[in-house]
Amino acid sequence: MSKEELVIDTQNLQKKYVTDTVETTALAGVDLKIKRGEFVAIMGPSGCGKSTLLNILGMLDSPSSGSFLFLGQEVASMSERQRAKLRKHNLGFVFQSFNLIDELTVEENIALPLAYLGFSKSETEKRTLQAMERMGIAHRRNHFPQQLSGGQQQRAAIARAVVAEPALILADEPTGNLDSVHGREVMQLLSELNEAGTTVVMVTHSPTDAEYAHRVVNLFDGQIVTENLNIKRHAAELL
């Protein structure tokens, strides 16, 4: 596996939280490599460090020690400003609780990353419309988040995550707040994105959702305990 093909490459990644009296280890030496175009699910019981790992991979948090190469660049030692720059050009996020801005309409929410990237007005409109159409929520463009169903909100959130065409999408329990029908819809969308070439890393509790991934990484007490290839998915792709 050549280095260039790797989107994520971590070595001995550690994260410790220190309070006045207690030191908690959230990640205890994680080595994880994710190739471009992969769909990886991270599973494990509550408190095993899934979210911490995802936050570090998403550059929302920094590791206490260890190395984290993102597209071959060392991220661990970057400043907040440098990470913000790298983030906005390369990453898209999908959260369990959607995290849309209540004061902005669906369209405005989706256009937000493009605004920070400095896109022109016409380009922004074009890309936003494409993203909305792809997620099937263009008819709801002028609604505010509270006026949408959970499934619609998550589709809007995914549209926002992909609008700037990032190399990697990080999803934190994307179906956690949805019923099974809407959950399936969302997983279908993520799967389609992955098939179109986007790398997806997803934290989930749901074995059903994990089935959409190429590979499942199991975390326990801050360490990777097993990594399973999803035979079904690989087989489907081979066919």
Binding site: E80, R81, A84, K85, R87, K88, F93, I101, E103, P113
Partner: peptide, 16 residues
């Protein structure tokens, strides 16, 4: 807070 967090996630830096 959520709004701030989100803006940062989608690329806003502190100055903005």
């Amino acid at each position: 807070a959520k709004e701030v967090g989100l803006r940062k996630v989608v690329g806003a830096d502190r100055g903005q």
